[in-house]
Design a protein around this nucleic acid. Structure first.
Lengths: 371, 371
DNA sequence: TTGAAAGCGCTAACAT
DNA sequence: ATGTTAGCGCTTTCAA
């Protein structure tokens, strides 16, 4: 006979509070919403057991498919569960399993243009494995990050994903964390960490090769503030040119990551009477500025000059005149790879260190059509 | 004497698996990552208790500040906890408290331009109350949404936030959910639900008033595909004009939400030889297209024609020539209000139904400077 | 095939 | 002031 529990639903009027005022902030100091009317009682396995006339453990077995249960019994349990709208309590299960099937994400860039696609890729991959994402916005602030890391660990996440907004190095969250950490679109300065970034250099290489292949040879380079990404792309561009016995048609122009700077840079090139038939730009905004400025100064694209951007940002490439060729950083793929890396680290218990580079791909459009 | 538990750490080599193949999918079918090396054992309150020579409940009291503990005892417990790097297990606490301090978020728009700011505002407000966010990407697909709602409920979230990408109505998630639901930047078709959206009409009104106040009187209207937002803005614009004894200078032009359409629409106005001195645009992209097209056709902004957009999207307003005046939809504030609404609903146990409209604010820039 | 019992890590009455 | 005890909802030996 199953235990029929007639325990009166113990009303929890008051949410337990922590008011830890001492140095060790293990707990959260909590919200002042004490008003609470008792939350609706949820159906538990014991409710199902009672109604189905079996024990709780039989319910567990029937629902999980783990133990051995007679066919009819299982059917009855399933029916009752459905009828009662029973929902498995994953919190309780987590407690026992020592695993929450939850990943913590710390962004440095809220949900910016760079972070968002990474997150989309990651959520997708994690969702396939039924892993949920707990998101925190670290804003690139060490204090906030540390705070959220602790918060995530207290919630017993199985792993942590840190997203950044560039390939440049950032401080490690630390190696002594009890769960694996993977950096996406950011690389940790600590070589023992695992990071996933777009392969900027390869992207720049394919851009330069594309230009050469479509008959250009006098390439100019315009980018935003000098950083790792700009350096890598510039070096790669020069490599490809050098391999063809060429060099840049004009010293690299480095300024802001904006359309305004793109327009200015194009003017500079024109005023300097530089002899160029192609411009590689650090991002799509710069490229668009270059395009506009060239057009307004009587330089035709792609007839006279080819222009290529980075990011393949739909809003920019489509609105450009002509539509802009661009190097897609495959940010969603970066997110997916990071997620898979994390999943594997969790499964294996060890993180394979190092920087993984995800291939970029060139998306040719009219702005680099052969002259 | 405290119970000194010498239980050998039961290694959990295998993650418990569900292979439920029958109709009732209460549980997840799980990931095939069985390889697992045992996750590092975490420090528990009982470890702290043992080392501090007190009982577990004393540890709880000392750490939470709830019971009464002698000063020295508390200090000792705190010291040991810090030394052992004890981290409060919120999963266990949740189980008992019947509350997870976690909110589920279902987006319809991944992390698009509209959803992202809403999310930023919401995360901010929720984080202030130590609430975490579990994010799912519903992609506006009913099946996926339902799936994620169940997933969130199994994880026992305290409430659900649904974000959309417009003020237009959407299907309700249902009213029989055990936790409160709030719709942000989307309004549920069910009047019993709580929704938070930007006050589009008021925004359009302030735009029109701004134009009149700066000496314009012949207003044209260009927007994207006809929807609730467009209708509300158009009606509001007409109201303001009517109140001044005016009407639109040209029938409204409705097309796509793109720069290309903006350029086309401006051409249409010019070719139709419409007599206009201002254009209200449905979003910043359209406005920018209008600006570009006007300039390229010898119409000066703001001298001849004022142009105003919607969204106040930094990338667009700053790159426009001249910088674009725009109605900011206050999306972060929408997110914040939605979060607060949800927090209150959770605290009170009842959701106050209805649509809350958040004020928009006009950001005037050069494109509407007095002629 | 099923159920009783122990326990995941914590909290909260109730003793002492 | 501290400890004992009884759970929260679930899984999982182990016995029956």
């Amino acid at each position: 006979m199953p235990t029929i529990e007639a325990v009166p639903p113990k009303s929890r009027l008051r949410r337990p509070r922590f008011t830890e005022k001492f140095s060790l902030r293990c707990y959260s100091s909590c919200v002042p919403n004490t008003s609470a009317s008792a939350p609706r009682r949820r159906v538990t396995a014991s409710d199902v057991a009672a109604k189905a006339g079996v024990s709780i453990s039989t319910v567990s077995k029937a629902l999980s498919g783990n133990g051995t249960v007679r066919y009819e019994t299982r059917q009855r349990v399933l029916d009752v569960a459905r009828e009662l709208k029973y929902q498995h309590n994953e919190i309780a299960a987590s407690l026992l399993a020592g695993r929450t099937n939850t990943i913590g994400v710390i962004t440095s860039d809220q949900f910016g243009r760079l972070t968002a696609p990474v997150l989309v890729g990651a959520t997708e991959t994690l969702a396939e494995d039924e892993l949920a994402l707990l998101i925190c916005d670290g804003r690139g602030d060490r204090i906030r990050e540390q705070y959220f890391v602790n918060s995530l660990l207290r919630r017993r996440v199985d792993g942590i994903l840190v997203t950044g907004r560039g390939v440049f190095g950032r401080d490690s969250l630390g190696l002594d964390l009890p769960v694996p950490v993977v950096y996406a679109m950011a690389s940790s300065n600590d070589p023992a960490d695992a990071s996933v970034v777009p392969d900027d250099a390869a992207g720049a290489r394919s851009a330069a090769e594309h230009l050469l292949a479509t008959g250009r040879s006098k390439v100019a380079f315009v980018s935003g503030r000098s950083d790792d990404a700009t350096r890598a792309r510039l070096a790669a561009t020069r490599d490809v040119l050098a391999a063809a016995g060429l060099d840049l048609a004009h010293p690299p122009l480095v300024g802001q990551w904006s359309e305004g700077w793109g327009r200015q840079a194009a003017l500079n090139l024109i005023r300097a009477e530089a002899d160029f038939d192609a411009v590689v730009c650090g991002n799509d905004q710069i490229a668009r500025g270059v395009l506009d400025s060239l057009r307004e100064n009587g330089v035709r694209t792609p007839d006279d000059v080819a222009v290529i951007g980075f990011d393949n940002w739909d809003v920019m490439v489509e609105a450009s005149r002509p539509p802009l060729s661009s190097v897609d950083l495959s940010l969603q793929e970066v997110g997916r790879v990071a997620a898979r890396t994390l999943i594997e680290a969790i499964a294996s218990g060890t993180t394979v260190p190092g920087v993984r580079r995800v291939a970029c791909h060139l998306v040719p459009r009219e702005s680099t059509a052969p002259a």
